[in-house]
Design a protein around this nucleic acid. Sequence first.
DNA 1: CCTGGTCCTG
DNA 2: CAGGACCAGG
Length: 592
Amino acid sequence: MDPNSILLSPQPQICSHLAEACTEGERSSSHPELDRDSPFPWSQVPSSSPTDPEWFGDEHIQAKRARVETIVRGMCLSPNPLVPGNAQAGVSPRCPKKARERKRKQNLPTQQGLLMPAPAWDQGNRKGGPRVREQLHLLKQQLRHLQEHILQAAKPRDTAQGPGGCGTGKGPLSAKQGNGCGPHSWVVDGDHQQGTSKDLSGAEKHQESEKPSFLPSGAPASLEILRKELTRAVSQAVDSVLQKVLLDPPGRLTQLGRSFQGQVPEGRNEPSPPVGGACKDPLALVALPRRVQLQAGVPVGNLSLAKRLDSPRYLIPPRMIPKPCQDPPANCPLTAPSHIQENQILSQLLGHGCNNGHWSSSPPQDSSSQRHPSSEPALRPWRTTKPQPLVLSQQQCPLPFTSAHLESLPLLPSVKMEQRGLHAVTEALPFSLVHIQEGLNPGHLKKAKLMFFFTRYPSSNLLKVYFPDVQFNRCITSQMIKWFSNFREFYYIQMEKSARQAISDGVTNPKMLVVLRNSELFRALNMHYNKGNDFEVPDCFLEIASLTLQEFFRAVSAGRDSDPSWKKPIYKIISKLDSDIPEIFKSSSYPQ
DNA sequence: CCTGGTCCTG
DNA sequence: CAGGACCAGG
């Protein structure tokens, strides 16, 4: 049997009695979570309008339509079709996959698809952005074909018209089209990437005004009429589609922004109930007795003794050593972090507005690099995007942007947009949105690691309390839970390793195993959770670590490790020894 | 059925 | 650290 019964016996008691009570309540976090069903009106968009066959009575055209459709479909299957690819690149790239594969996650895609016309969900996507884009694309193609027909019909005269016609004719188009004049110059460059709905309408408008000159008086008036009608209809269709997709109430706009990284803004995740309060209990109850013991001079095995030797006091709050001083309360509009968010938001909005409408069928390369949440400059893609389409789009794109917003678009090629566009857009967004992080960034990870010193098994509710700047949803929550799971893994591995090491070193009394700040074990742990060593590891952690180490030691030395699940009991013990996390951690800008 | 945990793998 | 498989508990 183990010689340590002395020391260890008291532990379990503490746990089972005191701790249990508290952790229990806290841990059972079955967040009544959110109202998942929030059917968004505009989600219907895809199924409705434009593609209706009726639009093109001409059978011939429909035939072509079918053909084009297959082509388009093929295009959609390619890498990142029209979708601004790595939407969730940085922070939560995995959600989509999960959503796609795991049944239980299926509500996710649904909502996300609706909320995010452009997320990187599989193209195969059900309703949602992809479809809209596809439809728009189709429309564009169809229109182009029609125009080609018309062109052919009018061609003879066009050519007769001579260069003059084209010189004045293609206004905006000539600029884009390398071929300048020529009969095709006025043909909407549908396939050409820059061909946007904008282009179409814009071009057509020009044509309309000029057409008369193109078509000799004798020209079939019906053609002209047909064209106008068609143009108008298509324009309207495009408008309506875009409108439905993009023009949503401010409230939605918010969600739109939140959903950016491919996360489901599944209902509001209220800063959840005062769970924070719960967390304190564990240690408050569990550790407290110990503190009392210690302070009262009642040693709890070597643990307490060691404690007193090299460590300050239990009550001394951990602090960031080097850090100048904590940042002002979280909500500081334009801090570096929020800046990134702004970019995200902007790019999302823009992404929707433009990519969504097939017009900015921006090259795959672009889209792939687009919507890179955190790290990568969200604006990058725009630098390669041609301004024209955007300029044109102002004229008819019924986006929720104000003219001011749009005005900034042409300036996109980077910086300017960042300054003006961002401002404009962000101003239009709910204030809170700027501060809410839809994804997790390195800062959050760091914070989580520090929190690990206090809690090894945080409940999701607790996490929500300590990460007020994070928009929790299933993905984010599980990601964070996963973090802690990983932390634990590392932690326990280290413990086991050390325990075995101690055994092989001839240690026989677990009492001898205490994690001191100068120990190798501590170094490893500190390196892992507190790189940079800018945080003072709380004593309670050392205590828990010592305990864990001892438990492992006892288990291994007792040969219990032969049991496949020999660690379980240890986990159980440790899981009840979470401490309360300092209030400062509740600040969204804590570790800064 | 969902959540949260562990284990294993990359 | 993320993913995925698998499992237990509510």
